[in-house]
């Protein structure tokens, strides 16, 4: 039994239902969550309105983690099967992960400026997330520099696996660190969301941003596969 016989990414790139359902659901969800964030949820006691950025901050970081998981499994699948579509999926996932990571960093910095009065603190969780962003950035640089090279897909798959394996080390090991050295709030772990409206807004934003990430992933992957097909056709003529 080979990898491609068990799973296929056709549902992401070829299925018409996916192409219609994903954008519809994610855009509807995002507008609904925006409505909830700005009208339904009460003001946070200490930080006030600035806390409302929390929902998109966490949601986009969740989207980035999902894309990194996709990057890991598609890189493995590419090395196992040598099928082009897995490579395209990995490339798409890495670029979307970089995008969501950037959004997560930017929203975090905006929040940090109103909560800590500085744009950046050299605090373990912030540093580790910055490292994650740099790892994804270097992956996209490798893609750029190696385009046209015969071994590009192998190189990218190898770096993709190592990068994705390092993410839990970089991100989750920080939680073992002494709490006196940390500044980043732990809202979900400490059950900081008291009002029930916080919870469903949080869940709604997360789900719709995850769907949005999947939609972008399907677009990026399809575009890459199509551009490769065009190149092949042009080369054949």
């Amino acid at each position: 039994m080979k990898v491609e016989e068990i799973v296929s990414i056709d549902f992401l790139t070829k299925s018409r239902t996916t192409r219609r359902v994903l954008p519809l659901l994610s855009i509807l969800g995002i507008f609904l969550s925006l409505y909830c964030i700005f009208t339904v949820v009460p003001n946070e006691r200490v930080m006030g309105a600035a806390q409302r950025i929390f929902y998109f901050h966490v949601g986009s970081i969740m989207g980035a983690y999902l894309m990194i998981a996709v990057l890991f499994f598609s890189s493995l699948a590419y090395l196992g099967s040598r099928k082009d579509e897995w490579d395209a999926l990995a490339a798409g996932a890495a670029s979307i992960a970089l995008l969501f990571c950037t959004v997560g960093l930017a929203t975090g910095m905006i929040w940090g400026h109103s909560a800590w009065n500085v744009w950046w603190r050299w605090e373990p969780r912030l540093v580790s997330f910055f490292v994650l962003w740099l790892i994804l950035f270097s992956y996209s640089m490798l893609r750029g520099f190696s385009s046209g090279n015969a071994s590009q897909k192998n190189y990218a798959a190898v770096l993709g696996i190592i990068s994705a394996v390092n993410v839990p080390i970089v991100i989750y090991s920080i939680k073992l660190l002494d709490h006196t050295q940390q500044l980043h709030p732990e809202v979900v772990e400490k059950q900081g969301l008291k009002d029930p409206s916080y919870w469903y807004t949080f869940a709604l934003t997360n789900v719709s941003l995850l769907l949005f990430a999947l939609w972008l992933l399907s677009l990026a992957t399809t575009a890459l596969l199509l551009s490769r097909q065009t190149e092949e056709l042009a080369a054949g003529e």
Binding site: V131, L134, I135, F137, S138, M141, L142, L159, I162, S163, N166, I169, V170, S173
Partner: peptide
């Protein structure tokens, strides 16, 4: 260095 340094941070 671009590939190596971020992954060497831990």
């Amino acid at each position: 260095p671009l590939m190596l340094f971020p992954l060497s941070i831990p």
